[in-house]
């Protein structure tokens, strides 16, 4: 009980602070746009992992293999599809210039 509760609290606080940092960077324009966006993306990635870990209870050790396999496979497919789409369409639009 205690431990589960702490996990959720940790997740919530981590999510709030990661979000807070991201918004603050943009709001106060701490960095140039490109770096800001890169930082925001990194923070988002960390936050996704935090959510997976604390709210969705996926972890490397405890969870059943099936769930983790599934998520990693999906991540690969998403990377392929999104990456591929961006490469192909940016390539096309570059050649239309």
């Amino acid at each position: 009980m205690r431990r589960d509760f702490i996990t959720y609290c940790f997740g919530y606080l981590a999510a709030l602070s990661l979000t807070g940092i991201a918004f603050a960077c943009v709001f106060y324009r701490l960095l140039p746009p490109v770096q800001t966006f890169a930082l925001v993306l990194v923070l988002a990635l960390i936050q996704v992992i935090v959510h997976m870990r604390c709210f969705l209870h996926i972890s490397l050790k405890r969870s059943a293999r099936a769930d983790l396999q599934l998520i990693l496979f999906s991540a690969m497919i998403i990377l392929l599809m999104v990456g591929g789409t961006l490469v192909v369409l940016f390539n096309l639009s570059a050649r239309m210039m």
Binding site: A22, L43, L56
Partner: peptide, 25 residues
């Protein structure tokens, strides 16, 4: 629960890739 947390996760990507990217210019 999975659904609800998942939506949160999507929103994290939305606010990062859509809103913050758009506002950081």
């Amino acid at each position: 629960g999975l659904f609800w947390h998942f939506l949160d996760l999507i929103w994290v990507v939305i606010f990062s890739v859509v809103y913050l990217e758009g506002l950081s210019l």
